Structures are given as structure tokens and as C-alpha cells.
Amino acid sequence: MFFFRRRTSATELPAQLLAFMGTDIHSHLVPGIDDGVQETATAVHFIEQLQAMGINKIITTPHAMMDRYPNSADTIRAPFAEVAAALQAKGNNIPFHFAAEYYLDEQFAPLMAQPLLTLTGNLVLVEISFMAPPPQLHQWLFDLQAAGYQPVMAHPERYPYYHGNMEYYQQLKNIGCLLQVNLLSLTGYYGKHVQQAAQQLLQAGLADLTGTDLHHEKHLRAITGIGQDKKLRQLLEKYPFKNNSL
């Protein structure tokens, strides 16, 4: 017996659910170059679903992780163009751009010899190890700023070594880092501890931006589930995220 996963249809999506953010700055919608979508049709489908929920601009951010996903403008440009062309063929003119989610490790420093892919202006999305805090983190963030970039730390709530101590997050802010919380974290998708950390970041007013971090259909279903959580919807709609300014 074969079982088929049913795609979420636009008619099932809560209208304007994500209108509070407007711009999604974190997703993996360039096909075949990281652990996100693998086909152009899937990327287009996800973009249409985000639009149905109130997203009016997408800056998609493939992983740039040199030992696993050695992406750059050269590897991203062609598959991104296929998605953009498919959208245009359907008459869909949503602003759709690409940047990158840079993994900070020893292999990152040489990348700064060339211009980095920014979300907008000088904003650069970065992530770090989930296993342990890199001892060079402050130096890497300093180097980014010295080069004229503003680092945006992706999903800080997902780094377990920061849990239980809000001072770590405040330190990131103090050294000039913006913090981007995942919507999926607030739904409990990654577990209770991550959810609590995300909630604490919002309660403390430390989060600057949010993003879907959309990779696949399961993520999309978790995001649509926000529509059933009245308390979370109210929290998101009241929080002063800066996405709409990008």
C-alpha cells in the first residue's frame, strides 16, 4: 500500500496569517543546492503558499557552508533564475531575491575577500554550530562589522548552550548583532526548550527579525498551524519585528 503526503492548498491557509512580517528573510527556496527544496515546482508552490498567508516579499537564503554546501552567487544564480522565471510565467510578480545563510567557522574568513550576499544593504545572515559555542565567535562578528557588514544571527533560540541565560543573547546584541527568531521555534516544532527560549527572546524585546526558515512541506504545515493558536498570533502581531522595513 502506498501513502501520499497531501500538499497544503491555498484554500486551507489562514489569510493574512503572516502579514505582520510582510518580508520573509530566511528560507531555503533555491532548488537542489542545499537541504531545502529540490525542485523548481516545489519552490513556486511554497512561494504561492507564503503569499496566500500575507507574505509580500521573499529574500531566500541558501546555506553557505563550505564543507557541505559550498554556495556562492555563482552556484545560486542559475537555479534561482529558474524559480524567478517560473513565477513570471505564472504572472506572479512578488519581489523575490536571494542572499545566503553563512555558517561561521574557520572556513568563513576567506569568504570575506569577496562581497558577501546580503539580505539588504549590509545585513548578513549568519548561523553557528548547534553543538558548542565557537570560541572565535566574537572575533568573527567583529571582523564582519569591520568589513562594513551588520551580522544577523539566525535562530539564536536553537543553540542549546544559550538556554537558561539571557545574558548570552544580550551579549550578542551588545556587540552589534541583530537576532532573528524562527516562526517554527515559536510553534514548538523544534521542541519545548527551543520554544521557551524563543518566547523569552520576545518577552525581553531582544528579537529584531523573524523568518520561516522554510525547507519542506512539514515546515509549511507547522507554520499554517499558527492560525489555530490565538495566543501566539496575538503575540506575533503585536511584536515590533523589523521585517517590514526591509
Rank of each mutant, 00 (worst) to 15 (best):
L144D: 05
L116F: 00
Y149G: 01
V152D: 03
D143M: 09
M65E: 15
L186H: 00
P160N: 03
Q171L: 15
E82Q: 08
H97Y: 10
Y169I: 07
I47V: 06
M66C: 10
P151K: 02
Q145F: 04
L179A: 06
P156C: 09
W140R: 10
P151C: 07
Q114H: 08
I94P: 06
T60Q: 02
F96Q: 07
E127G: 11
D105A: 06
T61F: 03
Q170P: 11
I58F: 08
C177K: 14
G54I: 02
E167R: 12
G121D: 05
P134H: 15
Q107N: 07
Y169L: 08
M53P: 03
G164I: 01
G91V: 07
G54W: 05
M153F: 06
H63W: 11
A73Q: 09
I76L: 02
M53E: 04
Y69W: 14
I94H: 06
L144T: 01
Y161Q: 07
D74W: 07
I55A: 14
F130K: 09
Y168M: 14
Y69N: 12
A147W: 01
A89E: 15
L117D: 03
M65Y: 11
L141P: 08
I94M: 08
I76C: 00
V152K: 04
L125N: 00
F98H: 01
Q49N: 12
T60L: 03
Y103F: 14
H155T: 05
A99G: 00
M131N: 13
P160F: 01
N182D: 05
D67K: 11
N174G: 11
M153A: 09
M166S: 08
Q49L: 13
P133A: 15
Q150H: 12
F46A: 00
L186E: 00
Q145G: 06
I128F: 09
G121F: 05
